[in-house]
Structure formats: structure tokens, C-alpha cells
């Protein structure tokens, strides 16, 4: 055993390690950037999905805005009430209940209600199908049913059933990834409260809309007339419900002869 071989090796390597360690220690002390503990704690309390549903660049951005008082509590739909409670505790403010938003597909054009225009055999993706003469559904506004939204949903909340996408609102976190993926732009976020919703996106004139889909909105204005809260307006032969005004009375659902106005029930009432 030749210690004269081992000793310099050990000394040199540990010497390098020691020097690097010292330099790093000094550097981290000299060049310390003060980090905000509150912001870190808030980031910790957020779900960390970085989905951008709040309108800020990721969870860290939202946390920073919260600390500076620029952002509102309760706009983080993936985090839900849990995150709001945790953050309000950190910030020392009163908790406001989060208004949950969920995705809603504004189409009920299932295989029974719509026809096909062609025998589409291309790439199994809505984006590709939509690029070919607007897709194979008889309704050029409706769901193509090839499931781009289903594939993109990280929570498995969307299923394509009988040619039309459906959102399971109990699983939906309102991250709006599906909205971006839909080439027909028929998915939107809805607040999770009892309200009438128009499940159609067709802006064709009444007769034409009726031709392409059995449950199309024909713009007859029956719902608009019957709505006491004035929440429904018909533009471009299509009814739109203003969720903020809707009182959930259900008169519009009864008035609709086409069956495209339905009652949205929040998760808690299901």
C-alpha cells in the first residue's frame, strides 16, 4: 500500500471540492436575491398546473399578483375552494367562495340528430377533419365527434358519445385546454350554477338549421320572449343566455320547441 499515491489524490480532489464549496457559499451569501416568502407560500398552495386559467403566466405569476393585491382570489378554477382557503389564510384576508367554471359543449348534434355529408376516412382528428370542407357533419357549426378535446383533457372529463363531445362537470377543472383544441369553437366556460343554456352553435337561418340538425336553434325567439329575467337574446338566428342574469326558472326550456335549450345543473345538485 503506497500512501504517497493516495494522499495527494485525496488532498487535491477534496481541495477542489473545498474551494468550490467556499466559492459557492460566499457567492450565495454575497449575491443573495431576497425571495418573498409569502409568494412562495402562495405558489405552494396553488395546484401547480400552470394552466393559465387565471389569466397570469402560470401559478408563480398569479401568486405574485395576489401578493401585490393586483389579482382577485377565486379565479383559480383547478385549485377550487381548497386553494382559496389556503391562500386567504396566508394573506390574512377573508375567504371568498370560488365561482367554479366548467367547460360546456354548445352542441347536441349526435349521430341521431345530424347527418354526415361524406364518408370521412382521413386522420382521426377534429382539426384535420375541419380543414376538409369543414368536416363531415351535416351541420357546419357542430361537433365533429373525433375527440380532439377528449385527447387534450388532462382530467378525463370529456368523452365523445354518439358523435358528440360531453363534459363531465364533476371532473372538469375549467382549465380551458379543450376550448383551445376545438376547431369549431363550440366549447366555452360556464359558471357552475343552475341556469338555462343553449346547446347549439348554429347561426344558419331557421329552415336551413332545421335541415341539418334535429335539435338546432332556429332563432324563433320563443325563449327570448318567455324569459322574465331578460337573460336571453337571439342574434344571428341563435339564442344566447347571459348566465349572470339567468335566474334558473326554466321557462325557456319549456318554451323551446327544438329542445336545444336545456337546464344546466351544478355538480352539487346532480
Amino acid at each position: 500500500m503506497d500512501f504517497s499515491m493516495i494522499l495527494p489524490a485525496v488532498l487535491i480532489v477534496s481541495g477542489i471540492g473545498l474551494i468550490i464549496g467556499l466559492v459557492l457559499a460566499i457567492a450565495s451569501a454575497v449575491m443573495a436575491v431576497p425571495t418573498d416568502e409569502v409568494v412562495e407560500a402562495i405558489t405552494e398552495a396553488l395546484p401547480g398546473a400552470n394552466c393559465g386559467a387565471c389569466g397570469y403566466s402560470g401559478c408563480a405569476g398569479y401568486a405574485k399578483a395576489l401578493k401585490e393585491g393586483k389579482a382577485k382570489l377565486g379565479v383559480c378554477s383547478p385549485g377550487g375552494d381548497e386553494a382559496v382557503m389556503a391562500i386567504s389564510e396566508i394573506l390574512g384576508v377573508e375567504a371568498t367562495s370560488v365561482c367554479r367554471t366548467v367547460a360546456l359543449v354548445h352542441c347536441m348534434g349526435s349521430c341521431d340528430n345530424t347527418d354526415t355529408r361524406m364518408d370521412y376516412q382521413g386522420i382521426s382528428s377534429c382539426a384535420a377533419a375541419a380543414a376538409l370542407h369543414g368536416g363531415n357533419s351535416s351541420c357546419s357549426f357542430g361537433c365533429l365527434g373525433l375527440g380532439d378535446c377528449e385527447k387534450v383533457c388532462p382530467y378525463g372529463a370529456i368523452t365523445v358519445c354518439n358523435g358528440v363531445a360531453r363534459v363531465d362537470s364533476s371532473l372538469c377543472k375549467g382549465c380551458s385546454l379543450c376550448i383551445a383544441s376545438c376547431p369549431k369553437h363550440i366549447i366555452s366556460l360556464t359558471t357552475d350554477v343552475r341556469q338555462g343554456v343553449v346547446r347549439c352553435s348554429n347561426t344558419d337561418k331557421g329552415a336551413q338549421a332545421r335541415k341539418v340538425c334535429k335539435v338546432a336553434c332556429i332563432g324563433c325567439k320563443r325563449c327570448e320572449k318567455v324569459c322574465e329575467a331578460g337573460a336571453i337574446t337571439v342574434t344571428n338566428f341563435k339564442a344566447v343566455v347571459d348566465g349572470a342574469k339567468c335566474n334558473g326558472c326554466g321557462a325557456c326550456v319549456e318554451a323551446c320547441t327544438q329542445g336545444c335549450v336545456t337546464m344546466y345543473l351544478p355538480v352539487t345538485e346532480k
Partner: peptide, 26 residues
């Protein structure tokens, strides 16, 4: 001590990246 190349290099690179990160952050 050229046979210690690997371990010394890993040590140096790791330390260096840490240092660069600290400097950049500041």
C-alpha cells in the same frame, strides 16, 4: 492524477453551474 479526470470534472461542472446560476439570478 489524470485518472481522476471524471470525478474532478463532474465536481467542477456541478459547482460551476451552481455559481453561474447564482450570478445570473443576481
Amino acid at each position: 492524477l489524470d485518472y481522476l479526470q471524471t470525478i474532478v470534472f463532474i465536481l467542477v461542472i456541478a459547482g460551476l453551474v451552481q455559481l453561474v446560476e447564482t450570478i445570473l439570478k443576481k
